[in-house]
Design a protein around this nucleic acid. Structure first.
Lengths: 144, 144
DNA sequence: TAACAATAATTAGTACAACAAATATATGAG
DNA sequence: CTCATATATTTGTTGTACTAATTATTGTTA
């Protein structure tokens, strides 16, 4: 294949990724979910596993610490998440959904699952598997 | 498949996309290419086809106009690109590589092609085809 | 114990993404 | 011609990404 073509794949990937976010964000707005897609990712992770500190959570969702700090700041301001000082290591906070956060998660989760599913509706089971494998192969080829 | 899994695919796609950009950016820096990956995309398009106005170019590279305006601003500041007023329609600019821009393109293009290729080196021809098909299917499922 | 390295989180600075709204100009219908 | 509409671009705002620097704390070791 011509070298030039590889630019095209990067472009397709970028474009598709953007549209997935864009679509979800638009639907979030329509449903009056007052969060971004990335904020959703954080809430979802905290809902599955409380007591994570920021570094663990950052690793979990694949974002860096400064980015996560800001997402957490925003979620705290919305009173969906709270930081708790860890007495055993005063450098750390553990992160927790507030009661309101838990309630919103119950309310939002089924609808979000539906919205997120939309992207994949015209793919076969084999397509999912192939996509997963291909993306992971790329990811590992670029180990930093 | 459980609905919850679909979140995972979005996550994989986002993560891989980020790493592709991240990798290219890091290599750009090592090679002292003083541009971002998105700026590269613009230069590349202009190198192939001069005389585009901003709206055409935005469409071409799949970014919206405000985003492109700012990328062009930066490239103009670096004196790689210039805006030329179109006498026949004074709302438009056509965009052109400067001499320095053309020179840099010649210098950078082969190396950039190599860098971009790195992501795909462990995939087969069939993988490329599958990936392209799958990404386009997703893109079209989310027509906005 | 004092000095040094490592870690958790934050902050600052720059850039891009997405969206809405504003501005300037052009075009078409009447 | 004039008004409404459309088009090209810019501006403002919020959020995310990456780098580098900073603060506070903990761990290590001479």
């Amino acid at each position: 294949m011509a070298k030039e073509s590889f630019n095209t794949y990067s472009y397709l990937l970028d474009r598709t990724n953007r549209r997935i976010k864009q679509f979800a964000q638009k639907r979030f707005k329509e449903e009056s979910f007052d969060i971004t897609v990335d904020q959703w990712l954080v809430l979802k992770s905290l809902n599955q596993e409380n007591d994570q500190n920021q570094s663990e959570l950052a690793e979990q969702i694949g974002k860096d610490n400064p980015t996560l700090t800001r997402i957490i700041d925003l979620l705290c301001k919305k009173e969906l998440v709270e930081r708790r000082q860890l007495p055993s290591d005063r450098r750390c906070f553990t992160l927790h959904l507030t009661d309101e956060g838990k309630q919103k998660m119950e309310e939002w989760a089924p609808k979000v699952a539906e919205i997120r599913m939309k992207a994949w509706e015209n793919l076969t089971e084999k397509d999912y598997e192939d996509l997963k494998r291909i993306l992971n192969t790329i990811y590992q080829s670029l180990e930093i």
